[in-house]
Design a protein around this nucleic acid. Structure first.
Lengths: 145, 145
DNA sequence: TATTGTTATACTCTATAACTATA
DNA sequence: TATAGTTATAGAGTATAACAATA
């Protein structure tokens, strides 16, 4: 099926783009992924971030340490639960992702303007279902093992 | 712009999917990426594979070693240039990616059938342009440094 | 002389396990 | 007792630099 092929190529290109961006910013790939999640979903708990990335808690601890050192995100105390940290994107982090966005968005330049809204809706659906498929696999693994 | 947001989410979901798949297959992310490239582009030289992945030659050597150990790809001699190796996907590799595809393609189930051809064309264009943007950045870096 | 790939080495990132603090 | 996060440690992947073989 051609759409599957095209989607595979798009994901590979996205991963390639991310790697180049990470190199340019002297960040690792995980840091740029975390930044993307913070940008689109707002503040996140560490374990929440870990779920999105597929990381365990100790890896998230190390990742958030790196984000703090780079001034991209910071830990804020949870208002009611003192065990938790809230990972919050800094203004500097926002400026970094905004700058990246200026390059990123050019990949949509050749999409006809009037088909952009439909495309956005379709991509959103596909993204949701792709994540759902992945989660189905992990759930299956958890059951059998 | 909403399409940019949606595309970002799709790429993040794609990376998440890949990570889950890699875990399930006990492969690393790079191996599954290489498999994807071999599947969609056929045989590749090692340095060619390195360019697609954004890796240097020594990393590709290590990666192809791993692929060979897992029976996913093999090195074949280049017919005329004895310096080169051709990285060739094995039948086993093909069966692995085919099986993954059965899960992967379900993320397209909710896309209306009659809009699939347009979607495929659009995704292909966006993938090309995304890679082109990334390459523009690396070229810029190479020039200034 | 340039290119393709390998080796030795060091560094970075992620996972496992044990632990602390809080709910 | 369960949950959120940290620390110590080990393991795996990638990069740098020097190298061998071939073009």
């Amino acid at each position: 099926m051609a759409a599957g092929e095209a989607l595979r190529e798009l994901i590979l290109a996205g991963e390639y783009f991310r790697q180049v961006i990470a190199n340019n910013l002297e960040l690792d790939v995980s840091q740029t992924q975390a930044l993307g999640y913070l940008y689109s979903r707002g503040d996140l708990g560490q374990s929440e971030l870990g779920s999105l990335l597929g990381y365990n808690t100790s890896s998230v601890t190390a990742l958030v340490d790196r984000l703090e050192r780079r001034g991209i995100a910071e830990r804020l105390p949870h208002p009611t639960d003192r065990r938790r940290s809230i990972v919050h994107m800094t203004e500097n982090g926002r400026s970094v992702i905004t700058e990246v966005g200026q390059t990123f968005l050019h990949c949509l330049d050749r999409v006809p303007t009037d088909s952009v809204p439909d495309l956005a809706a379709t991509l959103t659906t596909v993204a949701q279902d792709l994540r759902a498929q992945a989660d189905r696999l992990t759930a299956g693994r958890a059951r059998t093992e």
